[in-house]
Amino acid sequence: MSYERPAEPAIRIEGLTRRFGGNAVLDRLDLRIGPGEFLALLGRSGSGKTTLLRTLAGLDPVEEGEVLVPRNVAVVFQESRLLPWRRVWENVTLGLPGRDARDRAVAALEEVGLGHRLEAWPLTLSGGEAQRVGIARALVREPEFLMLDEPFASLDALTRLRMQAMVGRLWQKRRCAVLLVTHDVDEALLLGDRAVVLDSGRIRTELPVALDRPRRHDDPGFAPARRALLAALDVHETV
């Protein structure tokens, strides 16, 4: 398994260790993400995915090891985390400096197909719409590094497929480095340049996804890649 790493990674993690009560959730973790690379991070519950993302987002401290991330990062959480008391466009401009903030928010919302819901209150949105606002809120900051924490986990299957396609399109347009944390092997293969499996706080498997874009489930390379990833997650699909 060979993978050519870019000379200058956008994100560099070396020897990152994080303990909760003596228990190492992240254990001397090394990981690099190239500029413009889409990395899918898989792992079972408790494998340290969330802790890694929180550390990269600056929500958790770096206690051991070294972490290098660009200054301009954005996070999309599993729950959209919109402020219910601010209208949709105001949620997108939150903390955004400049006089043209509203125009930029409108543009970002139109990009995610919500140009018609600018003035809506967040509690009146559907789950998929709320998550799209969350994505617009992240993209309007033009991040160099975008983190997605299981962003589609609570959406219904059809909405999830649409959202995956949308994120794929947006990423190809913007080419920022992306870390997608997910449980979903198909999602990782549809979107990722590379998939890594986290296990007990270390990278257990690293798999470049050499499938043509736009990605399709019926690509002949899809099934073997899927099997390999599932095997790394200790799932063997034989019924």
Partner: peptide
């Protein structure tokens, strides 16, 4: 969770209180 979101958006303390 909302306060955490505010941190990732880089809100200042005053902005966090007001928003």
């Amino acid at each position: 969770k909302l306060l955490e979101m505010g941190r990732t958006l880089g809100l200042s303390r005053a902005q966090t209180i007001r928003q």
